[in-house]
Design a protein around this nucleic acid. Structure first.
Length: 264
DNA sequence: ATGGCTGGTAGAACCAGA
């Protein structure tokens, strides 16, 4: 049996505040599976009827009140749903499920890590590093073909940030973070699809701050959102895009969606 | 330039995002 799927990942920064945008996105890009991060809603407040009406009848939610929260919305069946708490504090940052064909899909919202890149002065930074360590322990035991995607909150390469020298001291691009991310990548031989499709040193960003007067003009972006593949899935991808124009829609998220098609 | 902006929740001289 051959399966072709179009899978998107989008840090939506409140799903309820952006239902119009989501509707437009589903209409224009028609993903089979949509992975959201920062839904900012408890499961009971999630707009499940909206997604069902749009054909996304298979849902795996890991929401919470106020902050964080992740969800997988799908037109195809999802099985074996689970959720890891790699921070050990009950924050809703991961939901996983199995796709048709037995491929695992793991949707994650890794902690941002606060402002100061020093674990002694800023516990959130330490929690972010610990989160990567715990994901690495999980990842090194993985044996199933897996798509790991979401908001990783680290931009690893110099061409993943608007100014490498400046960003070396800013949370999301510090050397200690980049090293943690690389340890996670190596623990399973993860393939960074974004850089397979758009090789370095070409500029590639998925996030632009709300604070810029003109985000496109200043272009102070970061590549924080990623799709990683088990090595055996590297040849299954058909295409990959950062949908930068969606960042320019009315009342946007500060993250652009990323989308890729696969056939297995 | 450590601000700028945005959403949730409360009803802020708030918090968090990154």
């Amino acid at each position: 049996m051959s399966v072709t799927l179009r899978i998107a990942s989008w840090n939506i920064n409140s799903v309820r505040a952006r239902l119009d945008l989501v509707a437009r996105f589903l209409k224009e890009y028609a993903p089979d599976v949509l992975c959201l991060q920062e839904i900012k809603a408890a499961n009971g407040d999630f707009p499940a009827a909206f997604f069902a009406e749009h054909g996304y009848t298979h849902m795996q939610l890991r929401g919470q009140r106020m902050h964080h929260g992740v969800a997988i919305l799908s037109r195809v069946e999802l099985t074996e749903a689970d959720s890891h708490d790699w921070q050990g504090n009950d924050e809703a940052r991961h939901v996983g499920a199995t796709l048709p064909g037995g491929i695992r899909l793991e949707n994650v919202y890794i902690p941002a890590g606060g402002d100061i890149p020093d674990a002694r002065l800023n516990p959130k930074f330490g929690q972010k590093l610990d989160y990567y360590d715990r994901m690495t322990r999980w990842s090194e035991k993985l044996r199933r073909p897996t798509i790991l995607l979401g908001d990783f909150n680290i931009a690893p390469l110099p061409c993943d940030v608007w100014n490498h020298k400046h960003m070396l001291k800013v949370v999301s691009h510090t050397p200690v973070e980049v090293e943690k991310m690389e340890q996670l990548r190596q623990s399973h031989g993860w393939v960074d699809l974004g850089r397979v499709a758009i090789p370095a040193p070409e500029r590639q960003f998925t996030w632009w701050s709300y604070r810029a007067k003109d985000w496109r003009e200043s272009d102070r972006g970061l590549r924080l959102d990623h799709i990683w593949l088990s090595p055996e899935l590297a040849e299954t991808h058909i295409d990959y895009q950062v949908l930068e124009n969606v960042r320019g829609w009315d009342k946007p998220s500060d993250h652009a969606p990323i989308i890729a098609s696969f056939s297995w």
